[in-house]
Design a protein around this nucleic acid. Structure first.
Lengths: 166, 166
DNA sequence: AATAATACGTCAGTGTTGTTGACATTCCAA
DNA sequence: TTGGAATGTCAACAACACTGACGTATTATT
């Protein structure tokens, strides 16, 4: 590569080598990101798919199956398998929609909230440590790059939830 | 950001809400991160496991199966299946180790390098767009947070490759 | 009222990727 | 040289995603 002498200075962070490092950082970091919840889930015979469902149902109580599908980006058959076990195990309840009876509104049960808490506590702990180690400015940059990396339709979902109150 | 009032100013980025946003950003961004290579791989009847193997073999030609295992964090049997198809398809060659004949040194063939290039071009394009949109300071922060999020053993691998020359 | 479209669930079949178990080969050290 | 450790391979199985097809209930359209 050897970006020319001067001139390109400001663009040094766009070299192939810098990009490769970013790609590998993303790969290794994501492993860490999921490691702690994965350990908890393994004991419960659940997988990441269950975690994701629980997370976003907890995040948007009353969400519909369709909405969840577009957030998670899986097929309804795949999601259904996960939801069925969560409902059978009493972590999630599915209510017929009020205004539109074709829809199902999904909620966490008390038990579901407990697991959600346990999982997100584990994940937050690591995230907190990373944030603390890197500092506020780094965190701002972190979020900026991630947002710029999202597909547009997912970015919409992200923005919608980002600004929602807890 | 519009950080709330005063007081905890410096620690506001460590609130649960900020951490949750980071977690969701990570989730959505990783989907974007893998989307482009995934599309290419789908046409070739390969998956992400193949991509990862090709990436790290291309990155460290002559690497052994064992080394690859510790980087990828899967069982050797799982990796072996992937390697076998790549070898059969002529993308990778496996040479008996010179000093230790138990080992296998892995290399990309010309064809393998071509696919590696195609995949990483696609992934780099998105990464480059994100970097460009976010700017150099944001990128530095991005990398800092990711590194702090890695498990220690993976961080070692990352550092080892980070500083290696192309 | 009849028809089309939407939301959800399910059954069947397939593919990738992870796992464990068993085994062959090679190296090394007692 | 013999036994154990390390390296890698083969086989069988489980988890989970996908496609495709279909059924049912409800809502929207004509």
């Amino acid at each position: 590569m050897a970006d020319g002498p001067e001139g390109g200075q400001a663009l040094l962070f766009l070299t192939d080598d810098q990009l490769r490092k970013g790609i590998e950082a993303m790969f290794f970091a994501y492993r860490g990101f999921t490691a702690d919840p994965d350990r908890i889930l393994a004991d419960l015979a659940y997988g990441r798919a269950h975690h994701r469902a629980i997370h976003f149902i907890g995040r948007s109580p009353g969400t519909t199956v369709n909405n969840l599908l577009s957030i998670l980006g899986v097929t309804k058959q795949s999601l259904n398998r996960v939801l069925r076990t969560l409902i059978e195990d009493g972590l999630v309840i599915s209510e017929v929609g009020k205004t539109d009876k074709r829809e199902r509104n999904l909620y966490l049960t008390e038990q579901g909230r407990a697991l959600e808490q346990r999982l997100s506590d584990a994940q937050r702990d690591r995230m907190r440590a990373a944030y603390r180690a890197a500092g506020p400015e780094a965190v701002a940059g972190f979020r900026q790059v991630l947002e710029a990396m999202m597909d547009e339709d997912l970015h919409r979902h992200y923005r919608a939830m980002k600004d929602a109150k807890v």
